[in-house]
């Protein structure tokens, strides 16, 4: 099927309002985004009704959060929380969501949590989150501002600082969530040496192997983003995950069909995706 005519017909209409890119994927990206938003709205409406929402599968890493908090409480040793190496990005927001949950528990059980920040803007928000948890538990005075430490913006200065805290404080648990870089293996191994139970979750592909090897529980890629829905079992958040999974399924179907057709010499899917 010749898609050139379709592409030529669409170009004048689209070029007036849609940005273009040299890979000719801007129209496809726009359609995909519109589809995703449609799914979000659909599941949003579904969450307002009474229909049962899709079930989330078990995620051992998130189930282990309570176990790690309990261990720290029993041993009387602190939890070290690392909310990632990037500033305000999607993984950091996900890490802060988990930190909010952990903060609720530590405030309830009077467990100490030391949070190590690489970026001061994240410190401002993170310490506020934890302080709010203590306020809600009626334990305003139990909040320790000194346990929220900006260590360094330098990657390995930060890693050294966290390792020092792990070893001096003999942490019982270490939570590494967010976006990590080469220091991931250093943090995880030092946590191992001090005998901490370690739960890690990060969204990129590069540090996953190191965290798998060194940590007790690892959240893989998207599982980090699932945390807020999983921990709260909120209908709306579960609906958002369902929308995400449906959109991903569409991509998978396109990949499978495209690979199959390409194997037999047809680049139809490629031409449809690169119309403009």
């Amino acid at each position: 099927m010749d898609t050139t005519a379709l592409s030529d017909a669409l170009r004048p209409f689209l070029s007036s309002w849609l940005r273009s890119d040299s890979n000719r994927l801007s129209f496809t990206a726009f359609i995909f985004f519109a589809f995703f938003i449609t799914m979000v709205i659909y599941y949003w409406r579904m969450s307002l009704g009474e229909k049962p929402m899709p079930k989330l599968r078990r995620i051992p890493g998130l189930d282990a959060l309570d176990e790690s908090i309990g261990r720290a409480t029993e041993m009387g040793r602190p939890i070290v929380f690392v909310p990632g190496m990037s500033g305000f990005s999607a993984p950091t927001y996900a890490a802060l969501t988990i930190m909010g949950y952990v903060a609720d528990q530590v405030a309830r059980y009077d467990t100490r949590m030391i949070v190590c920040y690489r970026y001061p803007e994240v410190l401002a928000v993170g310490s506020s989150i934890v302080q709010t948890s203590y306020l809600e538990q009626g334990k305003r005075d139990a909040f320790r501002a000194d346990d929220h430490r900006f260590l360094s913006s330098d990657q390995f200065g930060y890693a050294s600082g966290v390792c020092g805290i792990l070893q001096r404080e003999r942490a019982a648990s270490q939570h590494i969530f967010g976006s990590m870089a080469a220091e991931a293996i250093i943090l995880a191994e030092v946590g191992n040496v001090v005998g901490a139970i370690q739960i890690a979750g990060q969204t990129g592909s590069l540090q996953q192997p190191y965290l798998f090897a060194a940590c007790d529980y690892t959240l893989m890629v998207e599982e980090l983003y699932v945390a807020s829905a999983y921990l709260s079992q909120d209908r709306l958040r579960i609906g958002m995950l369902a929308a995400q999974d449906i959109s991903k399924s569409v991509l998978i179907i396109l990949i499978v069909i495209g690979a199959f057709l390409m194997t037999f010499g047809s680049n139809f899917i490629d031409r449809i995706l690169t119309l403009y």
Binding site: Y93, S205, V221, M240, S247, K248, L251
Partner: peptide, 17 residues
Amino acid sequence: AFTIGSTMGTLSQCVRN
């Protein structure tokens, strides 16, 4: 596959925010 999954998760997280 990781990149696709991560991107979808990022998109969802950002829309939620």
